[in-house]
């Protein structure tokens, strides 16, 4: 069963149709990439899936565990992470800059920890199972700090971390919500080649951990190398859907997007060619 099923999704802003009747699926345990030139509607689609926009039409079904389905478009924004188990990162990193890396990861576990405090009352009085819950929370946070190589920086304010570390911390924070589907908005943007390779390894590890991934990416190196499945958008419409090899060979994609003569150079940064 698919972790994400998008059916006939349309998003209009006034007269502008940013996403036009798009349908696709993302398989459980796969890394699915959405690519397309600037203005193709990738981020809008992404924001619909993560609940920041309410789609004008169509449906988004997520299956947090096999045999269970949640209609995302009917949920209020904050319930998407909890009920749909969808987590996301942001194109312009949105960390809690004045809080430490560890605190960022603890905030991500808010709902679970908050329930353990008896909604604040027991926690203030120091009774109930909050201590144990917090210890488990710190352990989970430590696990993801280790995975992202940030243990050393755990007690540093997030706003003071270097850019690449901030990107990794944002992924760690999203993973601390224990999602079934992790949505990444241009995770490789601004990373140098070494950091980019590290990112690939991290995302593979997350996939092996059982979490499905959906990513928007401009860096073709990352996309072709990492994805199990690619969806190509152009002018709000889906123009192709397939494996990296299929996409690379698809004449429609080449025509609309990669430009002539670029198909054998997957590392070329696409942004330069996208008009």
């Amino acid at each position: 069963m698919n972790v994400l099923t998008v059916t006939n999704l349309t998003m209009r802003f006034g007269g502008l149709t940013a996403v036009n009747n798009v349908s696709f699926t993302a398989a459980r345990g796969h890394i699915t990439a959405i690519i397309g030139p600037n203005g193709a509607g990738k981020t809008t689609l992404f924001n619909c899936i993560t609940g920041f926009y309410k789609p004008s039409a169509g449906s988004i079904a997520v299956s947090p565990e096999p045999g269970k389905a949640v209609q995302l478009e009917k949920l209020p924004g904050h319930a998407i992470a909890r009920k749909g188990r969808v987590a996301r990162t942001f194109q312009n990193i949105r960390l809690f800059g004045g809080m430490t890396a560890l605190e960022n990861l603890m905030v991500a576990q808010h709902n679970r920890l908050q329930a353990a405090t008896g909604f604040g009352v027991l926690g203030v009085l120091g009774i109930g199972g909050y201590r144990a819950a917090e210890r488990r929370g710190i352990e989970l946070a430590r696990h993801w700090l280790e995975q992202t190589g940030l243990v050393e920086r755990a007690d540093d304010p997030a706003g003071a971390l270097p850019y690449g570390a901030q990107r990794r911390l944002e992924i760690a924070r999203a993973m601390c919500t224990e999602p079934a589907l992790l949505c990444l908005d241009e995770p490789a943007a601004g990373l140098n080649p070494r950091e980019s390779a590290g990112l690939n390894a991290l995302l593979r590890k997350i996939r092996e951990g059982g979490c499905s991934l959906l990513l928007i990416e401009h860096d073709m190196g990352v996309v072709m190398n990492l994805s199990d499945h690619i969806i190509v958008l152009d002018h709000g419409k889906k123009i192709a859907d397939g494996t990296p090899a299929e996409i690379r060979a698809d004449p429609v994609v080449i025509g609309a997007y990669l430009g002539e003569g670029e198909e054998d150079d997957p590392d070329a940064p696409v942004a330069e060619h996208a008009a």
Partner: peptide
Amino acid sequence: EALREDEIACRSLGI
């Protein structure tokens, strides 16, 4: 405190 820092990020974390 997270809300003070970034409300949108809070929403994405299910708060």
